[in-house]
Structure formats: structure tokens, C-alpha cells
Design a protein around this nucleic acid. Structure first.
Lengths: 203, 203
DNA sequence: TACTTGGTAGAGCGATCGTTCTAAAGACTG
DNA sequence: CAGTCTTTAGAACGATCGCTCTACCAAGTA
């Protein structure tokens, strides 16, 4: 295994990823699929094709620091997905339904494994690992902001936009869990349709 | 520690609980708060004031069998809470908002620790422990049925009632996670209000 | 009394956990 | 070339994991 200079743009398309980036991505996906406690550092290293030494070199804070980085990575990734979905229509109701559809497809394609990338970790560490809880909080707030911006741009006032964003995000998160447990796209699709109905029923 | 005959009605008010019941309740609460992987059998025994021997006497299938029993217990408990909340009003919209309020209060009173009793365990064991996943599925379906019955009794047709139940349950679950992460009742209360709005906007 | 049954008690097993540590191999600078 | 810094490599540590096992105690029955 040769030393990999992590030079060049880390986000360049198709670029060979540096060790640190590979570790973060592996950690992010494993935490998403098996939770924080259920994922061992050695498994992360193995999955990332790195060694334990490398992991602790880049994350001297250990598992906790790695989890924070993994959640921040998931934050950016999911925000991009949200933005892409929302951009598919000017009508916010249609756009939200489009997002639900995209989530449902991705979920099915991963055999119901890749749900919300922070929920599992958040629930396990709540009230016991402040740094991780903080990272989860920032991710949720970021996604709410993305939704709220869409609603604002569609003519909703600030209060209304924030409340709708909070509701829609919570509903999508819950529906994702439900879809995973039922191994069916239906909860996500139904929730998407009803959220569209809610958005259209503005007072 | 004396032998405790688990005779008499196990659900009798104020009755001294048998060992098995104590273990199930402790397991249920611990899985709810720290997830499946994050909860050790020894901790469960300690919390239940039982010994390892007793735990494996009642649950020879080990942690997995205990988890199934714990989830079934949580299922019944949460269904009761839902029923109680829904019974507080004939108007289904008001009733749902009442449920959200009750959940928010309970969450705050537990210092944001006691969220949905199955989500954490469900996410950690998805696709890897079928018996637990099945128990989670039955709980979610049970809760959806409770909601759907309320909507049916309020004049919605079957399809509409089922879809609303699915949406409302998902939204409440997601909002509960959001409230826990933000340490605020607001997401649950907002989602409750918006769900009421959705229910009132019947076509 | 002797025997059976249902439950309690906890030492100890092998495996795995997160983490630490030493050693050495690239890559870059002078 | 020598010297420095970054990164890789993985053995090993103490702690904890889920679980097994034997011994024992308290009733009920004959």
C-alpha cells in the first residue's frame, strides 16, 4: 500500500481519494447503516482500505472525532441531494414530492440500508456525547434551512417557511425509517404526496 | 434477594413486579435511550435488579430474544399512550395535536431521553436481525392502525385513513428525533399543528 | 423425609472493543 | 546525500462484550 498524497482537489470527479477522505466516507456509510455503537474502528479501517495507524493519525480524538467528521460529511452530501431534488420544480409542493421520490428510489436501490445518515448515530449518543450531538444538530438545521429557503423563494413568509421546513424534514425523516422497516417505498411516497398537499393548503 | 413468585396479574396497579417483567422494562427503556448495540446485558440486569442468571433463565435466546420482548412491551405501552391522547377529542385534528403535545411534554420531562422506543433499535438491526426487525414492523403497523381507526371513525374513507395514519405517524416519529436533537419541544409542537392543518384540509 | 421444579447467584470463557505504541517507509527540503 | 516530516503498518493492552456453566436456594409434592 503506497503513500497517497492527498493533494489536488479532494472533490474532483473521479479523482483518487486520499486516505483521510476514504476513512471519512467509510465511517459515514457504516454509521448510517449500523449506528455508532455497532460500528467498530477496525471495520471502518478495513472498509476504507486503510490501517488503524492511519485512522488514529488523522483522527487523534478517536472514534468520537471521526464520528463528527463523518456526520459533517453526511451533512454536505445530503444537503446536495436535497438541493438537487428541490431544483427540479419551481412549485415547492412538487419539489418536495420529488425529493421524497428520490429518497425512496435511493433507499430501494440500497436494499433499504441507506436511510437518514445521522438518525441512528444521533439517537445512540444523545445526551452522552455532546460533540456528536452538536454535529447532528447542525446537519438537521442545515437541511431545514435548505427547505426553508425554497419556501421563502416561493412566496411564503419567514415564519411559515420555517415551520413548513421543520415539518417536512421531520416527516421525511420519519417516513424514511418507516420505509426501511417495512421494506417498501410506499411510506415515503405517501408522505411526500401528503406534504405536497399540506404545502398547497396555505391559508 | 428473595424468590419472587410472578403470580397475580402482572399489570395490576402498584403490584410488585416479577423478575421477568422488571428485566423487560429495564431492557425496553435502555434500548430506547442507548440503542441495541449500546446496551449491555449486564447493564440491563443491574438496572432491573436481577442477575445475569435470571436474565438468561427467562430469555435463553439471549440478547436478541430479550430485545424482541422489550419491543413488544414498548409497542403495547406506546399504543396505550396514543389511544389515551386520541381519546381526548372527537375532532381527529385536535386529537393528533393533543398527542404531539403529550409526546413533547414526556420528552422534556425525561430531559429529552425517552423518544420513540423502537427507532434506535430498528435502525441498528435493520437487515441483520430479522426477528427484531419483525417486532419493530409490528409495532409501527399497530400504531398506524390505532391512528387509522381514529380517522375512520371520523368519517374518512379507508384509503384516506390509512394514508393519513402513515403520514402522521412518520411525522411524529421524525419530529420526536428532531426535538431530541434540538432539545426543544418546538419541532413536535409545530409538526402537531401542521398535521392538524393537513387533516382539516380534506379534499 | 426425599425428590423435583423454578429461579437466583456470579465466576469465568473466548472474542472483540477502542486505544496506544514502536518501527519504518515514502516524500520533500537542504 | 543527509535530515525532517508525514503517513503507514500492525502487535499488543486492558476493558468490556454476550454467553455458558455450576452451585445453590426456596417452594411444592409425594
Amino acid at each position: 500500500m503506497k503513500t497517497q498524497p492527498q493533494g489536488a482537489s479532494a472533490s474532483a470527479e473521479g479523482a483518487v481519494l486520499g486516505t483521510r477522505e476514504r476513512v471519512v466516507r467509510a465511517a459515514s456509510r457504516l454509521f448510517q447503516r449500523r449506528g455508532y455503537e455497532g460500528t467498530g474502528i477496525k471495520l471502518i479501517a478495513q472498509e476504507a482500505e486503510a490501517t488503524l495507524g492511519s485512522v488514529y493519525h488523522f483522527f487523534p480524538g478517536g472514534k468520537e472525532e471521526l464520528a463528527v467528521a463523518a456526520i459533517q460529511h453526511a451533512d454536505r452530501e445530503f444537503a446536495e441531494m436535497l438541493n438537487a431534488g428541490l431544483a427540479r420544480s419551481d412549485d415547492p409542493a412538487v419539489a418536495v414530492e420529488e425529493c421524497a421520490r428520490a429518497l425512496a428510489s435511493a433507499l430501494r436501490e440500497s436494499d433499504w440500508a441507506d436511510g437518514c445518515p445521522v438518525t441512528a448515530t444521533a439517537l445512540e449518543t444523545l445526551g452522552r456525547t455532546p460533540s456528536i450531538q452538536q454535529a447532528c444538530l447542525e446537519a438537521l438545521r442545515n437541511w431545514q434551512d435548505v427547505l426553508a429557503a425554497k419556501f421563502l423563494a416561493s412566496g411564503f413568509d419567514g415564519q411559515e417557511a420555517r415551520e413548513l421546513a421543520c415539518t417536512v424534514l421531520s416527516a421525511l425523516e420519519g417516513a424514511e425509517v418507516t420505509s426501511q422497516v417495512f421494506r417498501s417505498e410506499e411510506p415515503l411516497l405517501t408522505t411526500g404526496r401528503r406534504m405536497a398537499q399540506l404545502i398547497d393548503s396555505r391559508t
